[in-house]
């Protein structure tokens, strides 16, 4: 196993053992924290595909996170009020089923990524960052001004959604769901990185000219990864909403996009487990420092600066000392 492989295994095991310990020690809040880490890491894994493999600095991934969140919120809201989403031309009802909600979240965020990517990937550099940011703001203000689904106040869901065969209200079982989905997304990412598509995409990041000269189109490659990336972050959004049993426009905010990017950068851009390490560190800091001072984000900012300046490989790069 490579050094990074060992580090990854330790992180994966750690994220599993902490909530198991918390279960034994009867510390449900710790289980909830671990669940939050798994979900936010999943959002980061999505972004890391676009950012790490594709070199696409998207400051608009909150769009997909929010779409996933609202997919859950809207479906569950209609289910709890027994009020169908539409009746004509055919009946669509709400649902409390997680798999159905996930499917809707993944498909709708993938479609949004397709549209946003098709427009914004024609630009690059700062323009790409600004356009993705602008799309994020559009969705944010749209959500605020959409009274049918709570507007600024958001939507509260009374009972967590259901998964066949599991009691999702039991924290450890819900953690299990998020953990398995995180591992699945990581597995998918690793496969994509090592695939023909991954080779072409990472080459297009380093030298688009080279990729065109062998007969491949960087735009297509980037659009494809942007869609996959958005879909995974959308799934994370649906889970996040389920964790909180609440959705609000802040899921669409640029601060949310920034946070997802911070997970990736803290943990290590293009490192498979970077977003997991980054999200875990972020949540730990929020938990510890947040109790000491409400200005805890200043310390995160300082840490981020230190990482960017002195450890561009992030936490994972630091621990593996740059080795792969």
């Amino acid at each position: 196993m490579t050094r990074e492989g060992i580090v990854n295994a330790v992180i994966a095991l750690g994220l599993l053992l902490v909530p198991l310990w918390a279960l034994w020690a009867n510390e449900p809040f710790t289980i909830t924290l671990a669940t939050k880490v798994a979900i936010l890491a999943l959002a980061g894994v999505g972004l890391n595909l676009a950012l790490g493999l594709g070199g696409l600095v998207s400051l608009g991934h909150a769009v997909f996170f929010g779409i996933g969140g609202y997919a859950m919120g809207i479906l569950a809201q209609h289910a709890q009020t027994f009020d169908p989403i539409m009746e004509a031309p055919f009946l669509i009802e709400g649902t409390k089923s997680m798999p159905v909600i996930w499917l809707v979240a993944v498909v709708s965020s993938a479609l949004a990524a397709l549209a946003i990517g098709a427009l914004s990937l024609r630009t690059s550099g700062v323009y790409f960052i600004m356009i993705t940011l602008a799309f994020g703001q559009m969705f944010y203000y749209f959500a605020i001004s959409w009274p049918a689904y709570g507007g600024e106040d958001g939507l509260s869901i009374y009972v967590r959604n259901e998964f066949p065969g599991l009691n999702t209200l039991n924290p450890i079982e819900f953690f299990g769901i998020t953990y398995v989905l995180l591992l699945a997304a990581l597995f998918l990412s690793a496969r994509i990185a090592a695939s023909p598509f991954g080779l072409a995409l990472t080459s297009a990041r380093q030298s688009p000219q080279r990729v065109e000269t062998v007969g491949l189109r960087p735009f297509r490659l980037r659009l494809t990864v942007f869609v996959i990336s958005g879909a995974i972050t959308g799934l994370a959004g649906a889970l996040f909403a389920d964790l909180n049993r609440f959705v609000s426009p802040t899921m669409f905010s640029w601060q949310m996009s920034g946070e997802i990017m911070i997970f990736v950068i803290l943990g290590g851009v293009a490192r498979l487990f970077g977003p997991v390490a980054g999200a875990a560190l972020f949540i730990l800091l929020e938990h510890w420092l947040g109790g000491v001072s409400e200005y805890w984000l200043i310390w995160v900012g300082a840490l981020l600066l230190a990482v960017v300046l002195f450890a561009p490989g992030g936490l994972i790069g630091l621990v593996t000392r740059g080795q792969k």
Partner: peptide, 9 residues
């Protein structure tokens, strides 16, 4: 089409 899940090497 470029395969997404097979190992290129």
């Amino acid at each position: 089409r470029l395969a997404l899940f097979r190992s290129v090497l």
